[in-house]
Computed example of a mutant assay.
Amino acid sequence: MASMSLAGAVLVVVLAAAQPARACYSRVFSFGDSLADTGNYRFVFSNDTRAPVLWPPYGETYFHNATGRFSNGRILIDFIADALGLPFVPPYWGGRSAEYFAGGANFAVGGATALSPEFFRRNGAPLANDNTVHLDMEMDWFRDLIKLLCPNDTAGCSDMMNDSLFLVGEIGGNDYNLPFFAGVPFEKIQNFTPSVIAKISSTITELIELGAKTLLVPGNLPIGCVPTYLMRYKSDKKKDYEPETGCLRWMNQFSEDHNKLLVDELEELRQLHPGVTIIYADYYGAAMEIFLTPKKSVSLAKIKDNNRTSTIEYPLVACCGGGETYGVSSARCGRGEYKVCDDPQKYGSWDGLHPSEAAYKVIADGLLRGSYTHPPIANSCPQLTEMVSSAEFKVLYDL
């Protein structure tokens, strides 16, 4: 399967097996949608037993089994937790004991939105499923967990809150995806952004009021580079595409507009809460490294119990699905007569909507070892500097 070829720098990252002397944080608490879900979907929607994410080929690359992650292997939160010296963050609905949550909890659910279904009904864009999980629900679960972890005195959780990292997202993508797929006019969808940002902001404020001291808040990915959208809005007009990437220009601009509003809102929150560290995670910028430098190679540890280097050769193509152009067709990954590529690590997308493990690894490297967190996450976790110094970066040029 061929993809758009672009000449440019090829960055090869070889990471040594190094761990920080101690974890920067005692726990990670995560909120969001399918980009962060580590298994909640199977519990929250237990009646949806035919959901493809619950079965192989999902999870086949790293876990060798479906874990409820919407990818072929590890996702961003897995790489973040590992780099911080913590175990993978367990799904909230997977356990009910304090011991189970010793390393934190993940409240993210595939399909979740920032805003409630009521908001969309009120604004003339009702969701197909009124049971859609949203941020207010995830916050309710978090409050319930606090009661479990601190049964006698919730105020006594202050040390835990101080020492925890709160990952607030990615969230908001489905507030746009679901209306897009339902055929809601783009002009109407654009008007949802201020409300999405306001909900993310109020959630951050609630977490701070509960004692959170360090929050990592992601922006949206460049949705104009998502294969499903590239296929859905395929155009004969050259001006609709970014010449450097082949991504849809107008959709990426929409993502950038969302992210700019979010960055401005986070700056206001910093002014209101000077004792709290609020870090913007530039998922957009980190992901664009894949599309601007399409043959980016990264070390992918522990795959088939052997370190190796994989090259993302097809950044705009889905590995699992079908179709010749972007790897998407009427057959969805895990449903119908779908096809799976021979090597998922060569693809930027897993199923046409979600990044591959290789893409997640590139984004994680950009956040944890690159320049895509503001302020740098290393400021609040100096141990990450040790990992950077133990890594070898080589830049090659494919001219």
Score class of each variant (00 low, 15 high):
N259H: 13
A98E: 08
W250Q: 06
L261M: 15
L215W: 12
H374V: 13
Y280W: 12
E357F: 04
A51I: 01
D159N: 13
L76E: 13
E242Y: 12
V196F: 05
D236G: 05
D136H: 13
G39M: 01
D48N: 14
K295E: 13
T325E: 15
G59S: 09
N47T: 14
L266F: 14
C157R: 12
F192C: 06
A182W: 01
I363S: 02
L148T: 08
S3K: 02
Q190C: 10
M160H: 03
A36I: 03
A66L: 05
V89C: 01
R96S: 14
A114C: 13
W93Q: 10
F88Y: 10
P227G: 02
H258N: 15
F31N: 00
E206Y: 08
S5T: 13
C225I: 05
D305F: 09
L35S: 10
V28K: 05
S201K: 11
K302E: 11
G348P: 07
R42G: 10
A7N: 06
F192H: 10
I200Q: 12
F291H: 14
K346T: 08
E60R: 11
D140V: 09
P375W: 05
A105R: 04
G173W: 05
A378F: 03
P185A: 10
L292K: 15
G172D: 01
A102V: 09
Y229H: 03
T205V: 12
P179V: 06
D342N: 09
R27Q: 14
P90F: 07
C150Q: 14
G224F: 08
I171H: 07
K234Y: 11
V217I: 14
A98F: 07
R74F: 05
G352R: 00
V28I: 15
I377Q: 05
L353E: 06
A81V: 05
H273G: 00
P126F: 07
R27Y: 08
V168F: 04
V317W: 10
E209K: 14
F142H: 15
A66Q: 02
T205P: 00
S46G: 00
A364M: 02
D163S: 15
G95C: 06
S297P: 02
D163F: 05
D342I: 00
K188T: 15
T205L: 01
L384M: 00
A9S: 12
A2G: 07
C157Y: 13
P90E: 11
L145W: 14
L292C: 04
A114E: 05
F101E: 13
L261Q: 14
L316V: 09
T385W: 02
Y176M: 12
S356D: 07
K346N: 12
C247M: 12
V13C: 10
L127Q: 06
G211V: 04
Y229M: 05
F119L: 06
A358Y: 04
E242N: 15
Y41F: 14
